[in-house]
Structures are given as structure tokens and as C-alpha cells.
């Protein structure tokens, strides 16, 4: 790297950082609920709520995946503390997204839900992604990590990559024409995945070995 990395800021280790992260990540939820209650999601508020929650699930999933590349680029090791927090909030948004679809959009209409889950590819992909996120959330407490052992836990949590890919495809397949934000999510996801390649391979992707020149 040609640029000198800025030193890790001291506040990154402060006690208020995790709760502040949680609060910040919950702002979109508060805004959505506020809009739903005041009529700002008019004229199809249930659809807007389901889609809004889905969009934020994907955005936070991408943010979770951005922590490791950000740490590698900046060298700020304590960023990792936030990864689990943001990941768990992502799962919370996914739960609300599924609940809004099942409870508000379909009003627990079992025949429709059953047909959706067995017949519609985009819903099946979304549910698989959701199931993976549930497993990752369930295995995130420190005690579980210890019981699994670091290596097994890391291997299990690589499932976040298929979960993110399925989530982005789930969104893209739902759209009627064009790519729109689903395309943007796909590009960001691809970039975040490439940035995880080991250093020599990464240099290969960007052309030239051992530096950013050229």
C-alpha cells in the first residue's frame, strides 16, 4: 500500500460503541414503523413495510460483510467487535421481514403460504437464506462459540456468503423488470467477496503484484 494507514482511533474500544451501533442500526426500523403509523407508506403500506424491511435486511447483511475487508484495509482490529452485533441486528430485520410477509401481507393464510414456500423459487431462496441466518444467530453467543471450537465455528459461519448471495438473488427475482437496487446490491456483494481473497490472489484480481501502482 502506498497510502499510510491512519492509526486505530482510541474510541473504537470504548464501552459506548456497541450500544451506539445497535441504536444506529435500529433507526431505519423506527423510521419505517413511524411511517406505517402516520400513513406515510400510503397507499400500499403493507407492501412498503415488507419491502422496506427486506431492503434493510440486505443492507445490514452487506454491512456485516464489510467489516472484515474494512479491518484489512485500515488495520483497525477492534472493528471485529461490531461484526456480531450488526449480524444479529441483520437477523432481527430478517425476522421482522418474514413476520410482516406472513402476518401482515398474507394474514397467516396457510394455503397461500404453503404454495409460496413450495412453489415459488424466489420465496424458497429467501427462506433458505433466512434459515442460514437463524443458524448463524443461534451459534453466535460466546458460550456456543467455545463449545463448537474456533475452527468449526469459523467454517460454519462461512455460510454467511451463500446466505448473502441467496438474499440478493431473492430480491432480484422478485422485481418485474430491470435490476435497480438489486443490481447495486449484487455489485457491492461481489466487491465485498473479492476483497476477502487472500492477498496474492487479490493483487492478481486488480492487476500487478505486490502494490497498487499501475
Amino acid at each position: 500500500m502506498v497510502l499510510k494507514r491512519p492509526p486505530e482511533p482510541k474510541w473504537l474500544g470504548a464501552r459506548w460503541v456497541p450500544p451506539a451501533t445497535v441504536a444506529l442500526c435500529l433507526v431505519p426500523l423506527a423510521v419505517l414503523i413511524g411511517q406505517a403509523l402516520t400513513g406515510a407508506l400510503f397507499p400500499n403500506p403493507i407492501e412498503a413495510l415488507v419491502r422496506g424491511l427486506g431492503d434493510w435486511t440486505l443492507r445490514l447483511l452487506l454491512l456485516t460483510l464489510a467489516i472484515t475487508p474494512a479491518r484489512r484495509l485500515t488495520g483497525w482490529t477492534r472493528l471485529v467487535r461490531l461484526r456480531r452485533t450488526i449480524g444479529l441486528i441483520t437477523f432481527a430485520y430478517a425476522v421482522l421481514h418474514v413476520l410482516a410477509y406472513v402476518g401482515l401481507d398474507q394474514a397467516f393464510h396457510l394455503p397461500t403460504l404453503w404454495a409460496d414456500i413450495t412453489k415459488r423459487a424466489f420465496i424458497i431462496l429467501g427462506m433458505v437464506s433466512f434459515a442460514i441466518l437463524a443458524v448463524l444467530a443461534a451459534t453466535s453467543p460466546k458460550a456456543v462459540v467455545r463449545r463448537l471450537g474456533g475452527r468449526r465455528w469459523r467454517r460454519l459461519h462461512r455460510l454467511i456468503y451463500p446466505a448473502a448471495i441467496l438474499g440478493v438473488i431473492h430480491h432480484a427475482m422478485m422485481v418485474r423488470a430491470g435490476w435497480g437496487t438489486a443490481g447495486e446490491h449484487a455489485v457491492i456483494l461481489a466487491l465485498l467477496l473479492v476483497l476477502r481473497l487472500p492477498k496474492p490472489r487479490l493483487a492478481g484480481v486488480f492487476g500487478g503484484r505486490g502494490g497498487a501502482e499501475g
Partner: peptide, 8 residues
Amino acid sequence: GLASGLGG
């Protein structure tokens, strides 16, 4: 609020 917001 729910009525005018979520269903009208």
C-alpha cells in the same frame, strides 16, 4: 394511526 396508515 394503524388504520389510516396500514389499511385506511
